[in-house]
């Protein structure tokens, strides 16, 4: 571990909305912390809950799952399954002992570059306060 620890966030971003929103944040020259590593997925419904736990286990201090707003899914209903699924998984992770701030689900459209930057800023600030995640982590 380096002496100056910086939080690491793994973000699963739907390619139709959030990924484009992140692009917009970039082309709009918005500033947000470099803590997030985006993984582009076809739909937020693609994100298996095991991906989230695995990200935490292999070093993420926070995980973000983000996709189109309900009603706007490119595939009509993918994000509505996401909503149901992560309503449960979010609570379950916390039940296992994860701090609520470490895992977020957000709807961020292709037009919401500001929202994307704001979420990353908020998460990074929360994680700085919490420090590195040690829970459920793999031993290295």
């Amino acid at each position: 571990m380096s002496l100056t620890w910086e939080p690491r966030i793994v973000g699963f971003a739907c390619r139709w909305c959030t990924y484009a929103g992140a692009d917009l944040a970039g082309t709009s020259r918005l500033e947000y912390p470099a803590a997030i590593r985006l993984i582009r997925v076809p739909c937020s419904g693609r994100v298996n809950p095991s991906f989230v736990l695995r990200a935490f286990q292999r070093g993420a201090d926070g995980v973000l799952v983000a996709g189109c707003h309900p009603g706007d899914c490119h595939y009509t209903s993918g994000n509505l399954f996401t909503r149901r699924r992560y309503s449960l998984v979010k609570r379950f992770l916390e039940y296992l002992g994860m701090e609520p701030e470490r895992f977020r689900v957000e709807w961020i459209s292709a037009a919401e570059g500001h929202r994307f930057a704001q979420v990353v800023r908020e998460m990074t600030a929360d994680l700085r306060r919490l420090g590195p995640n040690r829970k459920m982590r793999e031993e290295t």
Binding site: L80, R83, L88, K90, E94, Y95, R104, V105
Partner: peptide, 21 residues
């Protein structure tokens, strides 16, 4: 099945109604 379907007005369980956590 509870996780095999959805309803258009499902709550966002990560935002609301979970006062216990």
């Amino acid at each position: 099945e509870p996780l095999g379907h959805f309803s258009p007005d499902d709550p966002e369980g990560w935002r609301e109604g979970d006062e216990t956590l």
